[in-house]
Design a binder for these strands. Sequence first.
DNA 1: TCTATTAATCGTAATATTGCAATAAACAAA
DNA 2: TTTGTTTATTGCAATATTACGATTAATAGA
Lengths: 110, 110
Amino acid sequence: MGITKSEIFTSDQNEIATFAKVFGHPARVAILQHLFKINACVCGDLVSVIGLAQPTISQHLKELKNLELIKGTIEGTSVCYCIDKDNWLKMKSIMQTFLDQDYAESTTCC
Amino acid sequence: MGITKSEIFTSDQNEIATFAKVFGHPARVAILQHLFKINACVCGDLVSVIGLAQPTISQHLKELKNLELIKGTIEGTSVCYCIDKDNWLKMKSIMQTFLDQDYAESTTCC
DNA sequence: TCTATTAATCGTAATATTGCAATAAACAAA
DNA sequence: TTTGTTTATTGCAATATTACGATTAATAGA
């Protein structure tokens, strides 16, 4: 049905999935990598750097903004985007706990 | 169009997105958490633990198997699933490099 | 062999995602 | 005001994902 039954999962599981999902597209990975690399705020040049049409980039930026991983500041006619470092750290902590599950127990089976 | 233009991204970016995508559904997060928790191999009880129908669980398991994050061993009429720890570590290393980008540079802008 | 059990596959419906052309909105500068 | 620049939004087509009933395949045990 294309619809995820999120109500049967814990908020922890849904939160991990929500963050993971936004990283589940190479354009959003590329946007984040570029923002980290440039560091100084970046505006419309993301369109030329990434290589997708302007509305498509705008849509990906919106998804990253919805999770508050980036923030945009209006500067005249353009918008300056950068990583929201506080929220990045919060997200990182959640994802790292998930990735580090293998530390919790160490018995091997098959 | 629903089709990702993966050819315009680096293999690194595509790999990160591929792993992230498989974590982008709470059922697969829950399956992995359960496999880590039980540690001893788990078979069909995933269906009752997770709360989705058997074909749905089977489909999610298939996606996790495709990325070799889990492996299944046939035991009589049932299948014993567990984490593929070697590949989990490889995946973790890739994802952690992505998450730790914030360590690379530290200037703040907006 | 027949039956029960377990898991995979098929088929299908509902919904979500991706991408872009066209357009709108917001603003700076002439 | 008009023009140009930049970004967001709308609308739509193509494809992907999620979920499950029905079925199949494989095997264990009677």
